[in-house]
């Protein structure tokens, strides 16, 4: 009943849960508190404990889902053919790179700011999940295409919302940093211009036969503008409304408009 995919998750779950308890006790919690998930007494360091506990529960859920869903699904024919065929080469994967980035973030976070630490942990968690599922699905059947389908079926429900939320978060955080770095009036103008630019560019693209690459170029320039502006804005900090220091503000504004205007002409 338990194929090795679900075993993997269950083992991960048990390890994480045990780790949570050990970590909880090690960081000053008491045994009852640790076992009762913090209901009775302390669990030591809340963050680490909750993280490990959450990871354990999540992988238990994944393992359960596997048992319920995925393993009932393996085609016996393909199952046997696993032994016969050589596992196909994997698609180029960026997860390793991203994982390294996560580790770097974490290291950075330990010395600079806890925000980086959390970011690093989140990135590593995502990479680990993706990698696990990828590694497991690569061996699921002998057929690379169906392996990819299996992978997508398992990870689609994770990736689609996560992608959506990351996209929103990036856009919202970036744009709001820009707005915050400038004066009230400038913020109003920038927001209006930016929205109008998106709107009229879309109208123009819809009416014209702008090629794919032009559209892609426009979209990437906009994205870079938002992210770059956001980083610049974050570095510049929030605008001090009672001081007469509009230097950073006007600089930002120029940066924004200089990237935007050529694009609209290009279209």
């Amino acid at each position: 009943m338990f194929a090795w995919g679900s075993k993997y998750f269950f083992a991960l779950s048990i390890t994480a849960l045990l780790g949570a308890m050990i970590y909880g006790i090690a960081s000053g919690g008491d045994i009852v508190g640790v076992i009762s998930s913090g209901y009775k007494g302390g669990v030591g360091d809340h963050f680490g404990y909750a993280l490990l506990l959450g990871a354990g529960l999540l992988s238990a859920c994944l393992g359960l889902l596997n048992v319920l869903v995925r393993e009932a699904d393996i085609d016996p024919d393909n199952e046997t053919s696993t032994a016969l065929t050589i596992a196909p080469p994997r698609d180029p994967s960026f997860w390793g790179v991203l994982g390294a980035f996560g580790v770097a973030c974490m290291a950075l976070g330990l010395s600079i700011s806890s925000a980086f630490l959390y970011l690093g942990i989140a990135v590593i968690a995502v990479v680990a999940l993706e990698w696990l599922v990828l590694a497991w699905s690569d061996r699921a059947t002998g057929d690379a295409d169906s392996n990819r389908i299996i992978r997508n079926r398992l990870l689609g429900p994770f990736e689609v919302p996560m992608f959506s939320m990351l996209a929103i978060a990036a856009g919202v955080v970036g744009a709001s940093r820009v707005l915050l770095a400038v004066s009230h009036t400038a913020a109003t103008v920038i927001a209006s211009l930016f929205a109008a630019l998106i709107f009229f560019a879309a109208v123009f693209i819809a009416k014209s036969n702008a090629s794919r690459s032009v559209v892609a170029g426009f979209v990437s320039i906009m994205a870079i503008a938002v992210l770059g502006g956001g980083i610049a804005g974050a570095v510049a900090g929030e605008y001090e409304h009672h001081e007469e220091d509009g230097h950073a503000e006007s600089g930002d504004k120029e940066a924004e408009s200089s990237t935007e205007e050529p694009v609209s002409e290009e279209n």
Partner: peptide, 10 residues
Amino acid sequence: AALGSVFIAG
């Protein structure tokens, strides 16, 4: 979606 995000940023 982009316009909605600008609204949220606002």
